[in-house]
Write a protein that binds this DNA or RNA. Structure first.
Length: 489
RNA sequence: GCCCCGGUGGUGUAGCCCGGUCAAUCAUACUGGCCUUUCGAGCCAGCGACGCGGGUUCGAAUCCCGCCCGGGGCACCA
């Protein structure tokens, strides 16, 4: 038992204030403007796991308050991604459905003199702000502000002509937190709610209102939000609210994961990438396609924890974790890359062989590998890369079948049967009668072609398999031509 | 330029708040061995780190100061 406790402590340290709060509420709040990647799922997984650990609530909230970059297909893609990861949410919100809520709080702040509608030109406002000064709008009465606000809503101002600002400390050491904007005017129709609204809340406002209204107790987010927290605290103070516990973590990088959501969307448009799940990407869709298992990603993220240090993950680490999980259940198959034919003479009577689908798990069942045999001659395909290393007289074993001795090399290898008994010689995977052509898409987007056992045609895909002596892969389709996506060795 | 944060083995982390039990945890990688009809998995052993300099203290990875290095923010994006 102490073991378990220790393990748990390592993976999931106790949350601050978990004891005093009756219930824990966390949330994952993605912007539906692009595909989820490793960095996003860090927030999602941590939030989810903690909610579950404390029997709390996990909320999914789409932060789509910028009509200009919302991509309608992303709402569902993100949900699919989360489901695949095994994350379940108790409540779901979409910010573009909640404008009235935000408006109510805006009006309350205006009437209490804690916010104002600013019509200054941005540059002018900024230089004033940087010097610690207030613009004329700040001194307006609540009544005047309400009037301006109504004019904003009515459409009397164009985009950029008016903005609602939250009053802060004009002398705050960081100019970036002073008098931050909470609402702006956007004329672009929103993909979900169309032209119903033209005044949109900005991130810091919508997040603050929602986190409080939804009872969020713990927030997980990247440290790039540190300044935002300072800004939001002014709003919480105005409204007399208590700020949730915020847990920040550093940047998570991995080779291939450099691309921003916008850059990915662009590259896909231009055809430079095959899609959001292009194997060269570190999007969740790509990781899934490459055969990474949800439990692998969860484990990796949980091991990372929530430290402020920036961490750079290596693919090797990801592979190692995944190998461990995949090995337990992946069906074994023979795949022969870049095949060369081998003719084996003097073979005794041979039947098609029945092989275990998994070396140590009998429940995985068996499969038949057919053999092309005429009289005492049998034909197989083996990897050329192995064959070139042999010389005449070498003995090798066709794995799980028989030993052969190499007689002649050429465009076709000629060999002779050398017994069934297990020998301490190289064991080579092979295919024979009925073998199917298959492509394996590699992580660098190149393709390796080869032959695979005919049983592939009857598999239910997608399926994670291990091609013996080649590596783990995810079979993506079995017809017309089977395609697998390589995961790792 | 201004504001903020961080630096533990090759990599990722635990420990740092509340100094001693830390000749520093765990994982991964790597090396060697065992096992195995895969170059996969498993088992065993080994390897290897507190950014630098000062200070406080009987004692510092842990506290203080300086330096160096790295990251983030300074959007009417999220």
């Amino acid at each position: 038992m102490p073991e378990t406790a220790k393990e748990e402590k390592r993976g999931l340290p106790e949350l601050p204030r978990a004891e005093e709060l009756k219930s824990i509420v966390t949330r994952f709040a993605p912007n539906p403007n692009g595909p989820l990647h490793l960095g996003h799922i860090r927030a999602a997984i941590l939030s989810h796991e903690y909610a579950r650990k404390y029997n709390g609530k996990f909320i999914l909230r789409f932060e789509d308050t910028n009509p200009e970059n919302v991509r309608p297909e992303m709402y569902d893609l993100i949900k699919q991604d989360l489901r695949w990861l095994g994350l379940s949410w108790d409540e779901e919100y979409v910010q573009s459905d909640r404008l009235n809520v935000y408006y109510d709080f805006a009006e309350r702040l205006l009437s209490e003199g804690k916010a104002y509608v600013c019509t200054c030109a941005v540059e002018q406002f900024r230089s004033l702000r940087d010097r610690g000064g207030a613009c004329a709008c700040r001194g307006l009465s609540p009544a005047e502000n309400m009037q301006r606000w109504n004019r904003m809503l009515a459409g009397d101002y164009k985009a950029g002509e008016a903005v609602l600002r939250i009053k802060t400390d004009l002398k705050h050491p960081n100019p970036a937190v002073r008098e931050w904007p909470a609402f702006r005017i956007v004329e672009t129709p929103h993909p979900r709610v169309g032209s119903k609204y033209r005044v949109w809340p900005l991130y810091n406002f919508a997040v603050s209102i929602d986190d409080h209204e939804m009872g969020v107790t713990h927030i997980f987010r990247g440290k790039e939000h540190e300044v935002n927290e300072e800004r939001q605290r002014f709003l919480y103070a105005h409204l007399g609210w208590e700020y949730p516990v915020a847990i920040q973590y550093g940047r998570l990088s991995i080779p291939g994961g450099e691309l921003s959501k916008t850059a990915i969307v662009e590259a896909v448009k231009k055809g430079e990438l095959s899609g959001y799940n292009d194997v060269r990407l570190a999007t969740l869709a790509a990781l899934r396609r490459r055969g990474f298992l949800p439990e692998t990603l969860k484990k990796v993220i949980m091991d990372l924890g929530a430290t402020l240090v920036d961490s750079s993950l290596s693919w090797e680490t990801l592979y190692a974790y995944n190998r461990k999980f995949a090995d337990l259940k992946a069906m074994r198959l023979f795949f022969v890359p870049d095949p060369i034919e081998i003719l084996v003479r003097k073979t005794p009577s041979l039947n098609d062989v029945r092989l275990r689908n998994h070396p140590s798990n009998p429940e995985a069942g068996e499969r038949i590998v057919p053999i092309d045999r005429r009289g005492s001659e049998a034909r197989f395909w083996i990897p050329k890369a192995d064959a070139v290393k042999w010389k005449e007289g070498d003995i090798v074993r066709l794995k799980d079948l028989m030993n052969v001795v190499i007689k002649r090399k050429g465009v076709r290898i000629e060999a002779e049967f050398f017994g069934f008994g297990l020998l301490d010689v190289p064991k080579i995977q092979w295919v024979s009668r009925g073998a199917l052509e298959m492509d394996v898409l590699m992580p660098d987007a190149t393709t390796i072609s080869g032959l695979v056992e005919p049983t592939v045609a009857s598999l239910t895909v997608p399926l994670i398999v291990q091609f013996e002596r080649f590596g783990f892969a995810r079979i993506e389709r079995v017809s017309p031509k089977p395609l697998a996506v390589f995961a790792h060795t």
